[in-house]
């Protein structure tokens, strides 16, 4: 029987911090579950979108930042469009992932995290995304052979839709500076 004894000050800060960071008015949540009802990836989350909000209200910082739910959100914004209280859960999830990384919380969905990282790396290098280098980096770092993705990936490659050579911007310096200044 897990009992929550008084809200500790640190926990109250979590709600405040997440609210501030995301700009979302989380205390307004009705728990009507409209978000979860329309979420395409909710079936894969251990805590559904509405529960994530409730857990933030209840100060469950570790559970929230360590959840797979925050990585499964695909930012389709179905929730945010339909929420009666205008809570953009997509934006909230972005903020939670950032917080998780800053706090050094191990990403529960490592591969999703690495895939995003690989993409960003590819943009960092040349200012534009390059599928082949991005996928190579992802496969190397995650050691995910992308069982289900390999064959279609090869097909795309064979169709010439994944060019071998990347296209770079001229202003690489500008891109580098932006990346530097946006470094967390």
């Amino acid at each position: 029987m897990e009992a929550l004894t008084n809200m500790e000050k640190a926990n109250k800060t979590f709600l405040e911090e997440v609210s501030k960071r995301s700009g979302e008015k989380l205390s307004l949540c009705y728990q009507c579950l409209k978000c979860t009802a329309g979420c395409p990836t909710a079936p894969n989350m251990e805590f559904r979108p509405n529960s994530i909000i409730r857990m933030i209200q209840m100060g469950k910082k570790q559970e929230v930042l360590g959840s797979s739910a925050i990585w499964f959100c695909v930012y389709c914004q179905t929730c945010g469009t339909r929420c009666p209280n205008e809570i953009h859960i997509g934006v909230l999830m972005d903020a939670l992932r950032e917080m998780a990384m800053e706090e050094g919380v191990h990403a529960k969905e490592k591969n999703i995290h690495l895939f995003h990282e690989a993409f960003i790396q590819s943009v960092r290098r040349g200012g534009r995304a390059h599928e082949v280098t991005m996928l190579m980096e992802y496969i190397l770092r995650s050691r995910d052979l992308m069982k289900g993705s390999l064959i279609p990936g090869v097909k795309l490659f064979l169709k010439g839709k994944f060019p071998l050579l990347p296209s770079f911007v001229k202003g690489k310096g500008e891109i580098k500076r932006i990346f530097e200044k946006c470094k967390k």
Partner: peptide
């Protein structure tokens, strides 16, 4: 109890 999370709640 907080039925929204299912957790027991005890407040001093």
């Amino acid at each position: 109890v907080d039925t929204l999370t299912g957790n027991m709640v005890e407040v001093a």
